[in-house]
Design a protein around this nucleic acid. Structure first.
Lengths: 196, 196
DNA sequence: TTGACAGGCTAACAACCATTAGCTATACTG
DNA sequence: CAGTATAGCTAATGGTTGTTAGCCTGTCAA
């Protein structure tokens, strides 16, 4: 990993933990193993690092939700749907980098308009679009009752997003959050799926 | 309004807008119309102000969701339910103080455990408990199909909470958020209410 | 070999920030 | 009236922070 990447990595960890204003350039440099002024050989300043982080968050978002390929096969039963969805959510919730990006965005969402937009995409639009496609696929195959896929996608993800946010700020309830999400998923299937 | 209250008021506005670390004691004093050192006649320090704000947020929470009296009459039809709920959400979304408390909590939720807890109560438990009661009331009167009221409450509020969060960071979409919430409410009624 | 560049370092600075000390005037209280 | 608490002020301080200037060293191309 290049120094430039190491800086981004350290900054993400610290920004997620203590916020942008709560983090000093010196702290970042310490983790990287260099002195603070050396950092300016790689980035123009502190804000430049933040912008690079948002860039990488956008890239990751594009990679996860942008293409059509990331949906995988359409689940053929509600059991399969629950299993696949739980895996997806569990990954999103626990992956350290995604988690840090989430925590960074949620804390800095009011800093400027760009971060506001990225936050909305990251936590609303992206996931919604992705699940709308899956639900649409299951409707076409007659597994899910016909309805507005975009709307159902929000009904599906909203409770999960709230639980993930909760587990970010209170990690000791992670297990409980996952259980709640599974309960919600089961309920969702009971309401919207055709078979019983 | 006493100076002590004015300080809290100014601090809430600034913390909501720029975060705790992004706000200086001098800025707060400027709004109040005093010099920074005078502020220490009223509070022991900057953190003391934050704690007082969290105190008042907890008090407000208790006042809104704590007692049994704040539910009002149980709605007798889905039209009434939508009207009453939209009013409640619209108020929560637009009231300047509630809005600032929300923005403060969301930014500082990782600062310490107490704020984490208050944030969860404020944005999850409180609303859930309140709507669970309303839904329970409507079930007892045979308006809503029998189900777990706690679960339905989350299905009801989760999409609304996400939209409110969105309108906090992108106020120019406030109208759009309200429209979405109404659409969601209608869908909710269609799914869970008995009459058509 | 020479020259340029990348990437580290130290020293330093100017700005800002939270907080304290100490003075003063006003307003209650006995 | 005397005394005391309240609440403002100015001045100052010690610490931190982001950033710049300038130096040194190793690498690599010409």
């Amino acid at each position: 990993m290049s120094t430039k990447e190491k800086i981004l990595d350290a900054a993400l960890t610290l920004f997620a933990e203590n916020g942008y204003d709560g983090t000093s350039v010196e702290q970042i440099a310490n983790i990287v193993g260099i002195k603070a002024p050396s950092l300016y050989k790689h980035y123009k300043g502190k804000e430049d690092i933040l912008n690079a982080l948002i860039d990488s968050a956008e890239a990751r978002y594009e990679e996860m939700f942008g293409s059509e390929n990331n949906i995988g096969k359409v689940p053929q039963s509600w059991e399969e749907f629950i299993k696949v969805t739980m895996e997806r959510i569990s990954f999103t919730m626990r992956d350290p980098i995604i988690r840090k990006i989430r925590m960074l965005l949620v804390q800095e969402q009011f800093r400027n308009e760009r971060i506001s937009e990225v936050t909305t995409r990251h936590q609303l639009d992206g996931i919604q679009r992705m699940f709308a496609k899956i639900i649409k696929g299951m409707m076409d195959e007659g597994i899910v009752k016909n309805d507005d896929p975009e709307l159902l996608a929000v009904e599906l993800i909203a409770p999960a997003v709230l639980q993930i946010a909760r587990s970010d700020r209170q990690p000791r309830y992670e297990e409980e959050c996952m259980e709640y999400i599974e309960k919600h998923l089961r309920h969702f299937c009971k309401v919207y799926m055709k078979e019983d």
